[in-house]
Computed example of a mutant assay.
Amino acid sequence: MGVRNYITLFLLSFSAFIIVSTEFAPLGVMSLMGESLRASESEIGVSVTIYAWIGTLVALVTPMFLAGINRRVLLAVLLGLIALANYITSIADHTFYLYLARVIGGIANGAFLAFLAITATSIVKDEVKAKATAIAFLGVSFASAFCIVIVNFLSTYLLWQTIYNILSLSAFACGILLLVFVPTLREHSSSKGFALFKKTFENKDVVAILLISVCCITAHFSIYSFVQPWLANTLALEESSVSLLLLCFGVAGFLSNTLLTRYIEEYLSKIVLYAIALTAMCLLLFSVFGIKGYTLVLYPLFVIWGGCVSSLIVCFQALVIKLAKQEAGNAVAIYVSCFNGAIGLGALLGGLLLQWFGIYILMLINGVIVLIACYQYFKRFIKGGVNG
């Protein structure tokens, strides 16, 4: 890849970082926003759900309405919407304006992520498409791992409104730079409208990867959504230990995505297999060592868990692109919807299972789900010889 391609990919990655940071930023300043807007923490938390679920719906319909638009202009406009959403949030004096901003941001989020991987792979040669996907998604991993920590840290020195202004200006700047560096691109699909779903779902290998990814991501977020209270309340760990464990998870995730840029092309199928298997192992061992109180063992498990889950998010998308071929744009949009939907589904099912059975049975159930997904992946894509 040339220097210009690398610059473009890292611009896409930083843009994704801003968009995902916009999604999770309220969680880092929840109390401060609640005081300013005279709202409860649950009302602020709802704004994150609004952002995610609207992103899910928009990503699903994006190929129907936006595929023929010049992608360079489209991405810049979407970042402009993110800038607008953050600005509205910064001047909001009521939850109505916060929710309005989240609706605008959610629309931009869904459309941008639906086009992120396909844009990254469109500017490089076939042999480095998976590497380009990994680079573009570095920003997603970094934001997912560190956004809340960074926003919370900045809030000790800056007003939360100032943080949103920084996000707004950053999004606007990224939009301008993408206009300069992204070439003129348009999506070309052999199917239109709702026919694109039929065309994509006729590819059984893509459907298999989508189902496996939904199982793994749902199981992960069923646990991850409640990991902080598990560590702090059930295991009674000190706040510093909880923060360190979550930091281990985040750093491992970021480093794994960095390593993916080097090895994903050559070992994509095997990376997915090992990552699913190790994720299942971690979820199952959490229930064992958590009950017995072996908290020191949690540190290596969190490192493995963070690295594997972060790798899977990128590798699943790379596999979808590789298997879908000419329908890659449509398939990626469906994957993004599945991914966002699985986050919400995981939190919902996790809450129900936690209430009914407790945290350790929740871990056991989700560990078994991922183990079954691992077997199905091995059976179809490794033993079955499907070219992933």
Results as ranks from 00 to 15, higher is better:
L283I: 09
A171D: 02
H220V: 02
I176Q: 06
W230Q: 11
L364S: 13
G139K: 03
V332G: 02
K292Y: 13
I334Y: 00
I313T: 12
T184E: 13
I209L: 09
A59C: 08
F378L: 09
S15R: 05
I365S: 04
L285P: 07
I343P: 07
N233S: 12
K198F: 05
P63A: 10
L154P: 06
G367E: 05
M64Q: 11
F201I: 09
V73L: 09
E265G: 12
H94N: 15
A132K: 02
L211W: 01
A324Y: 03
S42C: 02
I163K: 00
T121S: 13
F14V: 10
V73P: 00
Q376Y: 12
V206D: 03
A67I: 00
T156E: 14
P229Y: 10
E43T: 13
K270R: 14
I148Y: 05
N152A: 12
M1H: 11
L37E: 05
G139L: 03
N70D: 15
L32M: 12
L354Y: 07
G28Q: 01
I359V: 14
I217Q: 05
G106R: 06
A280S: 15
L211K: 07
S21E: 07
A171K: 03
G329I: 06
L78Q: 08
F137A: 05
V46R: 10
S141W: 00
L179M: 13
Y360S: 11
L57I: 14
V336M: 06
T89E: 13
I276V: 08
C216Q: 12
L196M: 14
S47C: 09
V103F: 13
E238G: 15
A219D: 01
V214Y: 04
T49Q: 05
S40Y: 04
F357E: 15
A173E: 08
L210E: 04
P26Y: 08
L312R: 05
Y87A: 09
K292V: 05
S269G: 14
N203F: 03
M281K: 00
H220S: 08
A208Q: 06
F249P: 03
C282G: 08
K379L: 04
V288W: 10
V180L: 13
L298D: 08
E327V: 10
T162H: 11
Q228N: 12
N109F: 14
M30Q: 11
R72F: 03
Y164D: 08
Y97G: 01
L98N: 09
L296S: 14
N165I: 10
V227S: 00
G2E: 14
A59S: 15
S311Q: 03
I369L: 05
